[in-house]
């Protein structure tokens, strides 16, 4: 599902490369924790995977698509196969929960009836059906993150990339979120969760752990 070959990323005006010769292979359906302290390069690696950055060196392949060779106009097609979850939720604050979740289907031109059915389905899975009409900014942090997850799950993605998904949540909500990510709801998708919090690994066991340290990758387990 994911293939990184000797990937390096150097940002202008920054001495130290964000990533140095990173190679990684993730099989379809695999659950992977990407750990490492803040500034280790986890977010950069995820940004390379969803095409927000291009590598300075090396090759990034997602679902058989070499992102270095992908024309920008084809990037939306790749992103429709991904589910992205961020620490800061990235919701449209004044829009309803339903509208936020429906967005990932609407952008792909999905039929209206299918959108309605699918959004109701995923809101049921993340236990937010009763809040479907509520504006996103009236929800608690845990609820907002579940809306973000529902949005990521709605199109039935092949790959879910979660960047510190529990960073803004209390332990109880963090556990609930992780359970959703490892549960049946992801529909066999590959999941890559970036976190700097080692306690998260103990919350939900299972899955491979890869560790990033100052831009270099170490396989932990």
């Amino acid at each position: 599902m994911i293939l990184l070959e000797e990937v390096s990323k150097v940002y202008p005006h920054r001495e130290e490369p964000a990533l140095k010769g990173v190679s990684l292979q993730v099989a379809p359906g695999e659950f992977v924790y990407l750990t490492g302290p803040s500034g280790a390069g986890k977010t950069t690696l995820l940004r390379l995977l969803y095409g927000a950055e291009l590598p300075s060196k090396g090759r990034v392949v997602v679902g058989g698509t070499d992102l270095g060779r992908l024309a920008p106009r084809h990037l939306p097609l790749l992103r429709r196969r991904l589910g992205l979850v961020f620490q800061d939720f990235r919701l449209m604050p004044r829009r309803s929960v339903f509208e936020n979740v429906a967005l990932s289907l609407e952008v792909a031109g999905t039929d209206r009836r299918i959108v309605e059915r699918r959004v109701e389905e995923v809101l049921e899975q993340v236990k937010l059906s009763r809040l479907a009409k509520s504006p996103a900014d009236t929800l608690s942090g845990g609820e907002q993150q579940r809306v973000a997850l529902a949005r990521a799950l709605a199109p039935g993605p092949d790959l879910i990339l979660a960047d510190e998904p529990t960073g803004n949540l209390d332990p109880e909500n963090a556990l609930a979120m992780m359970r959703l990510l490892v549960g049946d709801y992801v529909g066999g998708a590959t999941v890559l969760v970036a976190t700097h919090d080692p306690t998260l690994l103990s919350l939900v066991r299972g899955g491979r752990v890869v560790h990033l340290e100052r831009g270099r990758l170490e396989e932990a387990s």
């Binding site: 927000a52 939306p76 967005l103 990932s104």
Partner: peptide
């Protein structure tokens, strides 16, 4: 911010 969010979930230029 809203447009960037749309781009992240795969919205095309036309949308």
């Amino acid at each position: 911010r809203e447009l960037e969010l749309m781009a992240l979930v795969g919205a095309g230029g036309g949308y």
